[in-house]
């Protein structure tokens, strides 16, 4: 029964992937890609990885889909009369190469699955160490205790992606979101959804220390607030980045580095986190930076300002 559900999800993934690749319209492709991401979230949940399910739903499907839709809209705005055609290349080698790649992955995977394994020596060592950190969620524990340099660099990569994209948005004049009139229902929706989303983000952030959740999931959820505010015109993209945007943008990196260096100064190894409160501090700062970076990437702008409405 369980295997049947897994098989159904797996089949769904394969079909959706194929449809995304081979569909005729680009817009349809984006929608299918989002559905693919949500199905991936289901697959993660089935594979016993709820952290990944949350991240995939929020970041993989939500944020990526939103970014793709924005890019698509820019393409259409630039040349409205010529919607992007699905120009496909013909290649006789495509199919054999794809089959070869799939075979390679299958061999690696099946080899790894069927290999005899020492029953989780490293894993057990990690788990025993984690008891000391006070973090109930092993994923967060691993991210912050054993691979904290990676996590730090991950935040840096996200920031770098934004800075790189920012040089590419370039000098074009930002057209402000047109005022949508004061649609009563949209105002009511915002007033209900946004406070609730903030609450859920804080919940995810804290929950990350003992159950699925964490700074990245919380940041992605918080970014959804910003996207809604931009779409409804309450926030407008701006060409200049003020301190009010710039400081929170680097806050995660800043706090993480400072705490990590402080450990070095006090004689502990680099990035050894002295207590649970530092974890909360770092995760909160990271959440704010991640959310803001994602929102700015969505807006395609260097800064934000309050809308007139």
């Amino acid at each position: 029964m369980n295997l049947a559900i897994d098989a159904l999800i797996g089949l769904g993934l394969v079909i959706l992937a194929w449809q995304t690749i081979s569909g005729r319209s680009l817009f349809r492709g984006i929608v299918l890609f989002v559905v693919f991401g949500l199905t991936m979230a289901l697959a993660w949940a089935r594979m016993g990885a709820p952290d990944l399910a949350l991240a995939e739903a929020a970041i993989g499907a939500g944020v990526t889909g939103a970014l793709m839709l924005v890019a698509y809209r820019r393409l259409v705005q630039l040349h409205p009369e010529e919607p992007a055609q699905p120009n496909r290349r013909r290649s006789r080698l495509a199919l054999p190469i794809a089959a070869l790649a799939a075979g390679l992955v299958a061999v690696i995977g099946l080899g790894a699955v069927s290999a005899e394994r020492e029953p989780g020596m490293a894993g057990l060592a990690v788990m025993s160490e984690l008891a000391d950190t006070g973090l109930g969620n092993p994923i967060t524990g691993v991210l912050l205790k054993f691979r904290n340099l990676d996590t730090l660099l991950e935040v840096a990569v996200l920031l770098a992606a934004f800075l790189a994209a920012r040089t590419v948005f370039a000098d074009e004049e930002k057209s402000p979101t047109p005022p949508r009139g004061d649609l009563p229902l949209v105002g009511a929706l915002l007033a209900i959804i946004i406070p609730l989303t903030i609450l859920v983000a804080v919940h995810l952030l804290l929950a990350g220390s003992r159950e699925p959740g964490g700074a990245f999931q919380a940041g992605a959820v918080l970014a959804a607030c910003g996207v809604l505010l931009i779409l409804s015109g309450r926030l407008q993209p701006a060409t200049r980045m003020g301190l009010a945007v710039g400081l929170p943008l680097v806050l995660g990196l800043l706090v993480f580095s400072l705490v990590g260096l402080a450990a070095l100064v006090m004689g502990a190894p680099l990035l050894a986190l002295p207590g649970l409160w530092t974890v909360y501090l770092i995760e909160t700062a990271m959440m704010i930076s991640i959310a803001l970076t994602l929102v700015l990437l969505f807006a395609g702008a260097s800064g934000l300002r309050r809308g007139d409405s």
């Binding site: 105002g187 915002l190 007033a191 209900i192 946004i194 406070p195 609730l196 903030i198 609450l199 983000a201 804080v202 919940h203 309450r234």
Partner: peptide, 12 residues
């Protein structure tokens, strides 16, 4: 969190 949410909600 509820205080922040209430603040922003009141703005909206």
């Amino acid at each position: 969190a509820a205080a922040i949410g209430a603040g922003i909600g009141t703005w909206l």
